[in-house]
Amino acid sequence: MTTAPIAPNSEARMPLVPALETLRRARRDDEVVITTMGSAREWMKFGAPHALDIILVPSSMGHGTSIGLGLALARPDRRIIVCSGDGSLLMNLGSLASIVAAKVPNLVVLVFDNGVYEVTGQQPTAAASSGRADGRAADFPGIARACGFDSVHRFTDAAEWAANARNVLDAAGPTFVALHVAPVVGGIAPHSPGPAPARAQAFRKALGASSRAPARDLP
């Protein structure tokens, strides 16, 4: 586990799929996992979804952390694990401040930082070393610390992440984890696994959340 700062523009990266496999192995049965974009695409390839998975497709890009915050507030008895990308997080950086403000010890934000907008053709983000005039990457764990996260971690190596994942997930949160991953060559946007309203209803049922009335179309 790397809690001491390392060079933010380190090029050491683990492959995405083993990083997600580690999460899949470490995840407890009562934990909620929210996946988005590239993580959702690869997560769906692992097989039938867990009842407490939220495959956030279709999404409003970057809002996985906010949905996770809402779930963590509603269900303090459950650990909520959000898989975001670096491009997604950049679209909703303020959510890190909101998460700390709400003091949710049961929320874990995993940022799969590949430095690019993978599904649009791997253009560099404005935070990646290759996308910045001065070549210095933004420091996501540093941003999280500055927002007030106390449990902050960074991993660049798959074996190191695998060895520490459960301990990191179990830490008193909110927890922020930057996972440096390599972009998936040819990685495309994930396909929806089915109608979102029906998945929302099924998720609420699995979580034991009551439903007053079935969701209805707006006019």
Binding site: I54, S60, H63, S66, I67, G68, L69, G70, L71, A72, L73, A74, R75, S98, A200, F203, R204, L207, G208, A209, S210
Partner: peptide, 11 residues
């Protein structure tokens, strides 16, 4: 989106 998460969680 925070409201969405709260709703999904039963709040």
């Amino acid at each position: 989106q925070v409201a969405a998460g709260l709703h999904l969680g039963g709040a």
